[in-house]
Amino acid sequence: MVRALLAVIFFAGALAALAWLPTQFGAYGVGLLLGMTGYVTLASAWALFSGPTRYVSLATVAFFGIGAYTVAVLSETLPYPLILLVAAAVGLCVALVVGLATLRLAGVYFVIFTFGLAELIRQLVTWYEVNITGTLGRYIFLPISGEQIYWQLLALAAVTIGLGWWIGRSRIGLALKVIGDDEVVAAHVGINIARVKLALFAVSATIITLVGAIQAPRWTYVEPSIVFNPTISFLTLIMALLGGANRLWGPLLGAVPLFLLFEWLSANFPNHYSIILGLLFIAIVFVMPQGVLAMVERGWSRVGQRGRKAEPAGTEAAQ
């Protein structure tokens, strides 16, 4: 009980400190924090669904793009908070439809299906804009500063991780773990697999939609090739997998160092970025087979620190 209380206090304190950070840094520092928090939220939201179910989704950018596009379309007609609500609602609806359709798929079929989905949405948005509205490329002139975007993302990240923590302790979390380990067993013990998966997919997708919506004002100009850039899906996936997707803090621990690494590499090696990044990736796979968090934990227990932290213990070696 005391430990839980301490954890909450610590969490709140850390959050306050993070919220205070932008006042100390210039625009670039804020930009860095903003980008980092964006990916922390994306990776955490992605892991909400994909971590426990082991369904690797490449649809991240579909929802991200939907969010950004909703803002672009509505930026001059609705007040900002309402736009975010609409974006979340659109994301939720699409997620429910997609979720219902994808329940039958498994493994790599699901991976490519979600990729196809992202491309399909991009193509349809393009076609709609070209043929129905007669424009392509929309402008967002919202007076929202980098700091404000950062604070929104920070709040969303906190909610996402909080949600992950709550799910981990609830009945759903338990059900999910069973599904992840063996769907047949899960079905036999009376878990409604479809409903659990659908709910989780919808929550995860809605958060991702919001990330896109919140970040969009930063770019001024939006077109499908910009907001539906598949790189976003790949980076999210890589960050979450690297940190350890079935742990609460895994995505965060994957996103932060990777984001800083990307930044450092692109600042210092603009011409050999890809090569170094690629080699690092390969090295990481060989050196840290279980993700950053698992490795950090193992390092800790070896040094003799006390055991695990207060978090759901992931299934480490089993798949």
Binding site: Y28, G31, L32, G35, G38, Q215, R218, W219, Y221, I226, N229, T231, E263, S266, P270, N271, Y273
Partner: peptide, 11 residues
Amino acid sequence: DDRSSSEEVVR
């Protein structure tokens, strides 16, 4: 290198 990404070019 902005790597053809809007967010990168801004930052």
